[in-house]
């Protein structure tokens, strides 16, 4: 019934890579479920408009909530797309065993994630309403918060990626970079989805 086959400690990098890739995709599935629920929250509350408080009108103490343009959110998606392209560039470099291309791509991708994060936080700070001001305001901060969380995670990942590229750890195999590319794609898509939702006010 049984016979000697492989030994666990010397698995081929491709086997390990494909297993990790599946793991990351599964975790992304969970994240997709969460991002889609956020869209559901946005459109549900917008559709219900309970007590006319989706965009509250002005009262004596509080000015009316004026929705912000979704362009800011689209810029975040564009920055993410740049990061994705640069990580793709790094991946190409890794495949071609071009160390400088790999390092350069990884470095700029990291820079993009930091720029995106800073820009997102700046947007949240400069919004003309607080999150207490009605359902739209709450949802705006929810979507922006998800972006910020994603970008922070991306910054961590792409910093590690750049560092590892710099140290030459991807000389033998590059499945790490390939998996990070999957994450970048999802990061971009989720930012674009959020921006898409915010374009309906």
């Amino acid at each position: 019934m049984s016979q000697e086959t492989t030994h666990a400690h010397h698995e081929h990098p491709d086997v390990v890579g494909s297993r990790n890739r599946l793991g990351v995709i599964l975790i992304i599935v969970a994240d997709v479920a969460m991002a889609l629920s956020i869209l559901f929250v946005y459109f549900y509350l917008k559709g219900q408009n309970v007590n006319n408080m989706w965009l509250p009108t002005a009262t004596e103490e509080v000015p009316a909530t004026v929705p912000v343009s979704s362009m800011g959110a689209f810029y975040i998606a564009i920055i993410s797309a740049f990061g994705m392209l640069l990580n793709g560039y790094a991946l190409k470099g890794a495949k071609a065993k071009n160390q400088s291309q790999l390092t350069l791509g990884a470095m700029i991708a990291f820079a993009m994630s930091v720029i995106g994060l800073v820009y997102q936080i700046q947007q949240m700070n400069s919004a003309p309403f607080t999150m207490r001001m009605g359902a739209y305001a709450s949802c705006y901060y929810l979507i922006a918060g998800l972006n910020a969380l994603h970008l922070a995670l991306t910054a961590f990942i792409s910093l590690g990626n750049w560092n590892r590229a710099r140290l030459g750890l991807y000389k033998t195999d590059h499945w790490h970079v390939a998996i990070i590319q999957v994450w970048w794609i999802w990061m971009t898509v989720s930012a674009a989805l959020g921006a898409f939702a915010l374009s309906f006010t």
Binding site: N52, M53, R132, S138, Y141, L142
Partner: peptide, 9 residues
């Protein structure tokens, strides 16, 4: 925030 509080939509 007012995700669930009907007073805020």
């Amino acid at each position: 925030t007012t995700f669930y509080n009907p007073a805020g939509g």
